[in-house]
Measured scan of single mutants.
Amino acid sequence: SDYEVNVNGIHHRFHNISEELIKFIEEALRRGEDLREIIKKVRELLG
């Protein structure tokens, strides 16, 4: 049904976003950045 496609589409989009965010955060932590600064950047990215 349309509803299922829609829900799956939304889930898929969020899954991709969270994968990208996790990579972004892991790389920043590897560079020794402060978690609070990383979260601030993530918030800015998400608008």
Score class of each variant (00 low, 15 high):
Ile22Asn: 01
Leu46Trp: 13
Glu19Gly: 09
Val5Pro: 01
Ile22Val: 07
Phe14His: 00
Glu27Trp: 15
Glu19Asn: 11
Arg31Gln: 15
Arg36Leu: 09
Ala28Phe: 14
Ile25Gln: 00
Ser1Tyr: 13
Gly47Asn: 09
Ile17Met: 07
Ser18Ile: 03
Leu29Ala: 05
Gly9Trp: 00
Arg31Val: 08
Leu21Trp: 05
Tyr3Val: 02
Leu21Pro: 00
Ser1Asn: 09
Ile25Met: 03
Ala28Trp: 15
Ala28Ile: 05
Arg43Ser: 10
Arg36Cys: 08
Val5Cys: 02
Asn16Trp: 06
Phe14Ile: 01
Asn16Lys: 04
Ile17Trp: 01
Glu20Ser: 11
Phe24Thr: 06
Lys40Leu: 15
Glu33Asp: 12
Tyr3Ala: 00
Asn8Ser: 06
Lys41Val: 10
Glu44Lys: 12
Val42Ile: 07
Phe14Arg: 00
Lys41Glu: 06
Tyr3Arg: 01
Arg31Ser: 08
Asp34Leu: 10
Gly47Cys: 05
Ala28Met: 13
Phe14Trp: 15
Val5Tyr: 02
Glu44Ser: 11
Val7Gly: 04
Lys41Gln: 14
Ile10Cys: 06
Phe24Ala: 06
Lys40Pro: 05
Tyr3Cys: 02
Glu20Thr: 11
His12Asp: 03
Leu45Lys: 07
Asn6Ala: 06
Ile10Gln: 13
Asp2Glu: 06
Glu19Ala: 09
Val42Asp: 00
Glu19Pro: 11
Leu45Tyr: 10
Glu37Lys: 07
Asp34Val: 07
Phe14Gly: 00
Ile25Cys: 02
Asn8Phe: 00
Glu4Met: 04
Ile25Ser: 00
Asp2Met: 04
Glu33Ile: 12
Asp2Tyr: 09
Ile10Ser: 07
Leu21Gly: 08
Gly9Ala: 01
Glu33Thr: 12
Val5Gln: 00
Glu33Tyr: 14
Leu21Val: 12
Gly9Gln: 02
Asn6Leu: 07
Val7Asp: 03
Glu19Cys: 04
Ala28Tyr: 14
Tyr3Leu: 05
Glu27Ser: 14
His11Ile: 14
Leu46Arg: 11
His15Trp: 05
Ser18Asn: 10
Lys41Ile: 09
Arg13Asn: 14
Phe14Pro: 01
Ile17Gln: 01
Glu27Asp: 13
Leu35Met: 07
Phe14Asp: 00
Lys41Gly: 06
Val42Pro: 00
Leu46Gln: 14
Asn16Val: 02
Glu27Tyr: 15
Leu45Trp: 11
Leu35Glu: 03
Arg36Ile: 11
Gly32Phe: 07
Asn8Gly: 12
Arg13Ala: 15
Lys23Val: 11
Gly47Leu: 15
Arg30Met: 13
Ile39Glu: 04
Gly47Val: 10
Gly47Tyr: 10
Gly47Ser: 12
Ile10Asn: 09
Lys23Asp: 08
Glu33His: 12
Leu35Phe: 05
His12Arg: 02
Glu4Val: 08
Leu45Ser: 07
Phe24Lys: 06
Asn6Arg: 10
Glu19Lys: 12
Asp34Asn: 07
Ile17Ala: 07
Asn16Cys: 04
Gly47Pro: 10
Glu33Ala: 10
Ser1Gly: 08
Ile25Gly: 00
His12Ser: 02
Tyr3Trp: 08
Leu45Gln: 10
Arg30Ile: 08
His12Gln: 04
Glu4Ala: 03
Ser1Leu: 15
Arg30Ala: 06
Gly32Asn: 11
Glu44Asp: 09
Leu35Lys: 02
Arg43Pro: 04
Asp34Trp: 13
Glu20Ile: 08
Ser1Thr: 14
Ile39His: 03
Glu20Pro: 08
Val42Arg: 02
Val5Asp: 01
Arg30Leu: 10
Gly32Val: 04
Glu20Gly: 09
Lys41Trp: 15
Asp34Pro: 13
Arg13Ile: 15
Lys23Phe: 13
Ile10Glu: 13
Ile22Thr: 03
Glu37Cys: 07
Ile22His: 03
Val7Lys: 05
Leu45Glu: 05
Tyr3Ile: 03
Val5Trp: 02
Ser18Lys: 06
Glu26Trp: 11
Glu26Asp: 12
Lys23Ile: 10
Asp34His: 09
Glu33Arg: 13
Glu37His: 13
Glu33Lys: 10
Leu46Pro: 05
Asp2Asn: 05
Ile22Trp: 09
Ile38Gly: 00
Asn6Pro: 01
Glu26Leu: 14
Ala28Pro: 01
Leu46Met: 14
Asn16Asp: 07
Glu20Arg: 10
Leu21Gln: 09
Leu21Arg: 02
Glu4Asp: 10
His12Trp: 08
Leu46Ala: 09
Val42Gly: 01
Ile17Lys: 00
Gly9Asp: 05
Glu44Gln: 13
Val42His: 03
Leu35Pro: 09
Glu27Ala: 14
Lys41Asn: 10
Gly9Asn: 04
Glu44Thr: 13
Ile17Val: 14
Ser18Arg: 08
Asn16Tyr: 06
Leu29Asn: 03
Glu27Phe: 15
Glu20Trp: 15
Phe14Lys: 00
Glu20Asp: 13
Tyr3Lys: 01
Ile22Cys: 01
Val5Gly: 00
Glu44Pro: 06
Gly32His: 12
Val7Pro: 01
Asn8Tyr: 00
Phe24Trp: 12
